[in-house]
Computed example of a mutant assay.
Amino acid sequence: MVHLSVNVNKIATLRNSRGGNHPDLIYLSKLILEAGAHGITVHPREDERHIKKQDVFDLREFLMLYNRDKKKKIEYNMEGEPSPRFLDLVLEANPDQATLVPVTPGEITSDHGFDLKKDLSELKSYIQKIQNAGIRVSIFMETDLENLKLVKDTGADRVEFYTGPYAHAFDHSPEEAKVVFESFRKAAEFLQTQKIGINAGHDLDHFNLPLFSRLPGLEEVSIGHRLMSYALEVGLETSVKEYLKALS
């Protein structure tokens, strides 16, 4: 079964736009989990425009208590750039997974994967330090096979595919998306030969997930923006359940 980790950045964005604690990030994270999600994802950026540093630790404490009380294993996934700032935050918060993502100053959202021809050495150093703390590491990548051939050298446990191109193709035409999906399928099959786990995320939704969930070896999808947007129409619980249904 493909796991759904819900990115709660957008809840924090709405809260921060007004100040105070409405909407309540912890309360809504609990609703997300009660609806069946398997994990929570955050991307604490340096400018704190959505998830703040304190949120990272508040969510960590909440999830520890939730797992204990419910006797479940809800995973905590932290996304961020390979930097001393993010490394220190990860090592202090001790999530289940750290997803390293290339960040361009001023970007609205993550919109590309790593180029391992130039990023490999730096990534390898950060990955080793995070793994030494017992934390699984995933790296944000596109589907270029020559680039993916270097993933093994980084030591990463998983790759998270940047699925923007697939989602945008699906928005235009489901038939066009099938063509784009083939590039992901070939990339996933290669990673399986390398014993690299596979995650995915970016603009996946309950319309395009039924096809994408067939990706060989797919273990987890991390979804925020579109799931939250749909929740404005149908409610948070229904939105999460629709996404879980699409994954099944």
Rank of each mutant, 00 (worst) to 15 (best):
L191K: 07
E182K: 15
A200Q: 03
F184L: 06
A188H: 11
E176L: 06
R185D: 00
V180A: 03
G201N: 05
F170E: 00
K195D: 08
A177I: 07
R185C: 01
K178E: 14
S183T: 15
E175W: 04
I198S: 00
K186C: 04
N199V: 01
A188L: 06
F170R: 00
I198K: 09
Q192E: 14
Q192F: 01
I198A: 05
F170W: 14
E175Y: 04
E189Y: 13
E176V: 13
F181A: 03
G201V: 03
E176N: 01
N199I: 01
I198H: 04
I196Q: 05
R185Y: 09
A188T: 14
D171Q: 05
K195A: 03
S173T: 13
A177R: 13
A187D: 09
F190D: 05
T193W: 13
V179P: 01
S183K: 12
D171G: 02
E176S: 13
K178T: 02
Q194A: 13
E176R: 13
E176I: 06
H172Y: 14
K195E: 12
F190C: 02
Q192K: 15
F190W: 15
H172M: 06
F181H: 07
R185L: 02
Q192H: 09
A187N: 11
K178S: 08
I196S: 04
Q194I: 00
V180K: 05
N199T: 02
V180D: 01
K178N: 05
T193M: 05
F184M: 05
K178G: 00
T193D: 04
Q194M: 10
S183Y: 14
F181R: 07
F170P: 03
P174I: 11
V180L: 04
G197N: 03
Q194S: 12
A188Q: 15
E182D: 12
P174R: 08
E189P: 08
